[in-house]
Computed example of a mutant assay.
Amino acid sequence: MKILTLNTHSWLEEKPLEKLEQLAATIVERDYDLIALQEVNQLMTADKVQTDAYFHAEALEGLSVLSDNFGLLLAEKLKSYGKNYHWCWLPVHVGYDRYHEGLALFSKEPIDPTACLVSQQSDFMNYRTRRILFGKTQLDGKDVVVVSCHYSWWSEDEAEGFLIEWQRTLAHLSNYELPVILLGDFNNPAGIDDQGHSHVLQRFKDSYLHAEEIDGEHTVIKEIDGWSGNDQKLRIDFVFTSEDIAAKRYEVIFDGRKTPIISDHFGIEAELYHVLES
């Protein structure tokens, strides 16, 4: 099974429609089974639209998909290439005072999505509000739960920030007895002890550390939104899996090497497989 995760930075990039086209073309060329996207935005003032049977609306949290929703336009672009993906979108909070910012999952198989509020803050107008998108789907003929994640930064205050959001994610995952794939922007760099990455490793495998083939590493290499003043190469976007899923290949993409840069984050492509039960 071939997966992609990307923080799209949608509508905040220069030439966003050109980058949307580049994303769609890469998805078609590389033929992903599953795609997790973060910062999937729509203008608050855009018009409501009808969605088709490939959209799964259970996670909408009372909002509507609007005409410039980045996920909607991507789904339509993929359809124009003859690729029909089931997809869902979860609005998380208002970003930059003008966007409904959210998370999306795309799958070749139908998706049963659920949403979980993981932050202490719950006000949709507050950018600190964090919700996480869970989707039950099938990969290689087996049920899995896939998660599109966009977490807060590490905080020493245990009442806010990544740690409490992660604990609430684990509580929600306890509702499933399935293999798990966690994808997205964790805002916690790899390699820092006793912070976000090390907490996740207590329960899940980092595909970068276990893949049989690895091509690339860092997903952020400069100052970006949320990382003001950063001058280091960071690995803050991840593919984590439960023990029953392994990684054959791991590649950083949309980094200007084989594929164009289309966001302030690079993406990750991974080829995963179910570990056979003994």
Rank of each mutant, 00 (worst) to 15 (best):
L4R: 05
T5D: 03
T5Q: 13
L6G: 01
L6Y: 07
T8P: 00
H9A: 07
L12I: 10
E14G: 06
E14P: 00
K19D: 04
E21W: 04
E21L: 11
R30N: 06
I35A: 13
I35D: 10
L37F: 15
Q38M: 11
E39V: 04
E39M: 08
V40D: 05
L43G: 06
A46R: 11
A46I: 11
D52I: 14
Y54A: 11
A57C: 04
A57H: 08
L60F: 03
E61V: 10
E61I: 05
N69P: 00
G71D: 04
L74M: 13
A75T: 07
E76I: 10
K77N: 10
K77C: 10
K79S: 11
K79L: 11
Y81F: 14
Y85I: 03
Y85D: 07
W87N: 04
C88L: 03
W89I: 03
V92N: 15
Y96F: 14
D97Q: 08
D97I: 05
L105F: 03
F106G: 10
F106L: 09
F106H: 02
S107D: 05
K108D: 02
E109F: 01
D112T: 13
A115M: 10
L117E: 09
M125Q: 15
Y127N: 15
Y127L: 14
T129F: 06
L139N: 02
L139C: 10
L139S: 12
G141M: 12
K142V: 07
D143Y: 12
V146Y: 01
S152I: 07
W153L: 15
S155V: 12
A159Y: 13
A159N: 15
E165R: 05
Q167A: 11
Q167S: 07
T169Q: 10
T169H: 12
L170G: 05
H172I: 04
L173W: 02
S174M: 08
E177A: 12
P179H: 07
V180M: 05
L183I: 08
G184M: 06
F186Q: 00
F186R: 00
N188G: 07
G191Y: 14
I192C: 04
G196Q: 07
L201A: 06
L201M: 10
R203L: 00
S207H: 02
E212K: 13
E213P: 05
I221R: 01
D225S: 12
D225Q: 12
W227M: 09
S228P: 05
D231T: 11
F238P: 00
D244Q: 04
D244M: 05
A246W: 12
A247F: 14
R249D: 15
Y250E: 13
E251Q: 15
V252M: 11
I253Q: 09
I253E: 08
D255I: 07
G256M: 06
H265M: 12
G267P: 03
I268W: 00
E269M: 03
E269T: 00
H274P: 12
